[in-house]
Design a protein around this nucleic acid. Structure first.
Lengths: 128, 128
DNA sequence: ACAATGCTTGCACCATGACGCAAGTAAGCA
DNA sequence: TGCTTACTTGCGTCATGGTGCAAGCATTGT
């Protein structure tokens, strides 16, 4: 098993990139950073479950951290495209961007699957 | 528009949780933390594109960080369930757990969509 | 004009984590 | 028994980021 890379690497990275879809495109760290914090995850879950726009104050009731922390997290989530903010008077409503979010998640899943289609002819038994 | 919470909150959080699927279950921060770092994202993309198990050394060639850093990242990714490690002699091969990963991503998308079915009768026009 | 409400922002603190270097471990080879 | 290869781990450093408090800003009501 010497020269492992020669024996086990039939494709160059460039060839692999051509064979697969643009996985990189959907592996956006800034998007997933939004989900990587437990507090943010609970905020997202809170708003998602409500199924409508929620004010900062309402969301703050759902978790134990400071009001200002919630405000900052929601602003971050809006910047990263997970939430959408609409202002009515002095109240800001944040709602989940369901369609865009689901599309991003499914696009990544599709791109990954394209790299290794478990039922595909080219891959079957060879890699996964 | 006084008493906003009364007017705009027809469901309690508990009722909302019952109406929706268990979004929390699929919003696992430890999973998404794996994708939240640019270096890790490029490592995942590298292995995913190859479509087979890659050794630590091979993956290290794909990015500019130290070998030890790559080793640590891959170990972390294996712990969080994104990759799977198999040892052959003194070489460790990491491969993407395509099926499990895609399932997690799609489950989250499904759970989110269940919270706000854009074409659903109960939600249409009311929330999103 | 003044006060109250809803949210944002500045500041300081502290924990986490990403990184590189160097030493350590384990497997194969001479 | 060494020596090389492939990887892991300990350690110190530095940057990022999550948190709470307090002050600031914008909007609404009196």
């Amino acid at each position: 098993m010497t020269q492992v890379s020669k024996l086990r690497r039939p494709t160059t990275p460039k060839q692999a990139a051509a064979r697969c879809g643009p996985v990189d495109k959907f592996l956006d760290p800034s998007l997933f950073k939004a989900f990587s914090d437990p507090t943010r995850a609970s905020l997202i879950a809170c708003i998602a479950k409500c199924g409508r726009g929620c004010s900062v104050g309402e969301v703050a009731e759902c978790c134990s951290v400071d009001f200002s922390v919630v405000s900052r997290h929601l602003a971050l989530l809006a910047r990263s495209g997970v939430l959408e903010a609409t202002k009515e008077g002095r109240t800001v409503f944040y709602r989940v961007r369901y369609a865009e979010l689901c599309k991003s998640l499914r696009s990544l899943a599709d791109a990954l699957e394209e790299c290794c289609p478990e039922k595909g002819a080219a891959c079957n038994g060879k890699c996964c």
